[in-house]
């Protein structure tokens, strides 16, 4: 069997006495979306940061194409960073308010010392390249999140870790961003690790779903199966809590 794009094995992260992530195992393939769902405080954001190596896992393994990331130092990680990028929840805090759109999208290119086509990236995420000189506060929430996505795409990653990427947006804008993410996945063959608490959003994007509760994955499976015939009590409670479900 071929090695998946991302394989996370028995990942743990503790803060003092408590375990935010407590032995989590899953895999994500190219072109596939794995959604991690769970209520706030279940450890899913910590999981996202450990996978994106913005936090140091306490133990366990994070392999990208078979390459171990969990134990690498900041310096050793640097050349590997372009392959996995993070999209943040709140685009009003994930873009430097002092910078222009151009500077924000160019930052990863500058840091890695590579050339890139900023207007092309803006067009790809559905933004008018004429907005390149604007500051974040001059953009709408949806436009800001598109800037965040363009920045994440700048280094041509294989994996995007999306930490509640539409939660801070209006419902109509959510649909636009979800469509954008689906199109980008198809065009670029991206693997998505999609963190969300919103089952309606998840059902629109996920191929597979993992349900997280108190730092552990209680159920993992194809999206239709987890949403349609949940096997774990906690998943049933989550599904039952969705209005209209």
């Amino acid at each position: 069997m071929a090695e998946p794009l991302l394989r996370v094995t028995d990942l743990r992260k503790s803060y003092g006495e408590s375990w935010a992530v407590d032995g989590v195992t899953f895999a994500v393939d190219r072109g596939e979306t794995l959604a991690i769902v769970g209520e706030s405080g279940c450890g899913k954001s910590t999981l996202a940061r450990c996978v994106a190596r913005l936090a140091q896992p306490t133990s366990g393994s994070v392999r990208l194409d078979g390459l171990e990331l969990a134990t690498l130092s900041r310096r050793r990680l640097r050349p590997l960073r372009p392959r996995f990028q993070l999209v943040f929840q709140d685009p009003s805090t994930s873009l430097n308010p002092r910078w222009t759109v151009e500077e924000i999208v160019r930052e990863p290119l500058r840091l890695q010392g590579v050339r890139g086509d900023v207007p092309g990236l803006l067009s790809e995420v559905g933004l008018d390249p004429g907005l390149a000189g604007r500051h974040p506060h001059q953009l709408s929430g949806g436009q800001r999140q598109r800037v965040g996505i363009a920045r994440a795409l700048a280094l041509s990653p294989d994996l995007l870790v999306l930490d509640e990427p539409v939660t801070a947006l209006d419902v109509s804008v959510q649909a636009q961003i979800i469509n954008l993410l689906l199109r980008l996945q198809e065009e670029r063959g991206l693997g998505y690790l999609f963190i969300s608490h919103d089952l309606a959003v998840v059902s629109a994007v996920a191929h597979r779903i993992a349900v997280m509760h108190a730092g552990r994955l209680v159920e993992t499976g194809p999206a239709e199966q987890v949403l349609g015939r949940p096997s774990h009590d906690y998943t049933r409670a989550l599904v039952a809590a969705v209005p209209g479900a």
């Binding site: 940061r49 994106a52 190596r53 913005l54 900041r74 310096r75 990680l77 640097r78 050349p79 960073r81 372009p82 990028q85 993070l86 943040f88 929840q89 709140d90 805090t93 994930s94 873009l95 430097n96 924000i104 930052e107 990863p108 840091l111 890695q112 965040g148 920045r151 700048a154 280094l155």
Partner: peptide, 22 residues
């Protein structure tokens, strides 16, 4: 702790870069 600093780290920014640029 802002996300835009996290984004810079996630793109490979070192300590000096975070200090001087952000």
């Amino acid at each position: 702790g802002e996300d835009y600093v996290m984004a810079a780290v996630g793109a490979g920014a070192g300590h000096l870069n975070v200090l001087t640029r952000h």
